[in-house]
């Protein structure tokens, strides 16, 4: 009886996921459709007589872009968590004078148009000599995520019971040790949440990549797609194929991360 219920729930879950991912199916469909059939009316639900030209182009050209995206994504995650977790902790638990203003500025800072930010970064990066490098891109992409990280860490860390921190203090732990060995482990959930979105933002950034890494030898995948856009033409097979190919390794990463979180929560419950 219970097994059947779980089965039904899974079925509902699968259907919901399928509805959510339908646009992705459509992307796959377009990536395989012959150029003459792209704008057929009515469209075909399934790419009969598929073309693999797009995939051939992508597989031979996009490897370096994918790897750069991965490096930029992971680098941005590391930088973002390193900057925002201590700040979130300070704002949530140590509550310095003026802390409210800091979180407020972060809220506002997110509203600065990306294009203005990009122009500012261009000047800064040019003088630092990090234009057209992945490091510059990591710095720029982190600005998409650090405000988010600070606000999320603040919100979640304010739920950490004060007694726990007081106990650590009584045990003789300094503020940094308390943060590292108590606060961070129990905030694993929020770390993963912040890391996840940071990665996704960095992965899909285009504005910074096109402004700050225009001529670099290492460019992210969003720039790789550019290879299929001319001044009057778009090679949709290859554009969609790039998106498909790019999302496969990242999807694995997500699924693994999610399993890790689920496992981590259970492990955390048993710890201490």
């Amino acid at each position: 009886m219970r097994k059947l219920r779980a089965g039904t729930t899974t079925l509902i879950g699968v259907v919901l996921t399928a509805v959510m991912l339908f646009p992705l199916y459509w992307m796959v469909n377009v990536s395989l459709t012959q150029p003459t059939m792209l704008r057929k009316d009515p469209p075909s639900l399934f790419p009969f007589d598929p073309t693999f030209d797009g995939y051939r182009a992508v597989l031979s050209q996009q490897g370096p872009y994918l790897l750069t995206s991965l490096i930029v994504g992971l680098g941005t995650v590391a930088l973002t968590v390193a900057l925002s977790a201590p700040a979130g902790y300070a704002l949530a638990k140590l509550r310095p004078r003026g802390g409210g203003t800091v979180s407020f500025i972060f809220l506002i800072a997110q509203m600065i148009p990306t294009i203005i930010m990009a122009m500012g970064f261009y000047l800064i990066f040019n003088s630092w000599g990090i234009l057209d490098t992945p490091w510059g891109l990591i710095l720029a992409d982190s600005t998409l995520a650090v405000p988010f990280g600070v606000l999320i860490f603040t919100a979640f860390m304010s739920g950490i019971p004060g007694e726990l921190l007081a106990a650590a203090h009584v045990d003789g732990a300094g503020p940094w040790r308390t943060f590292r060995s108590i606060v961070m482990p129990i905030s694993r959930n929020s770390v993963v949440t912040v890391a996840l979105f940071t990665f996704l933002w960095a992965w899909s950034d285009f504005m910074y990549a096109s402004t700050l890494d225009r001529g670099g030898s290492l460019q992210p995948i969003t720039m790789g797609i550019y290879r299929y856009i001319g001044n009057n033409t778009q090679d949709w097979n290859a554009i969609m194929a790039t998106a498909v190919v790019a999302s496969i390794p990242a999807t694995f990463l997500l699924v693994i991360a999610q399993r890790y979180v689920a496992a981590g929560v259970t492990a955390g419950a048993l710890k201490d």
Partner: peptide, 9 residues
């Protein structure tokens, strides 16, 4: 480009 894709049908 899209318009040309339409013509190509």
């Amino acid at each position: 480009g899209t318009s040309w894709d339409e013509f190509k049908t």
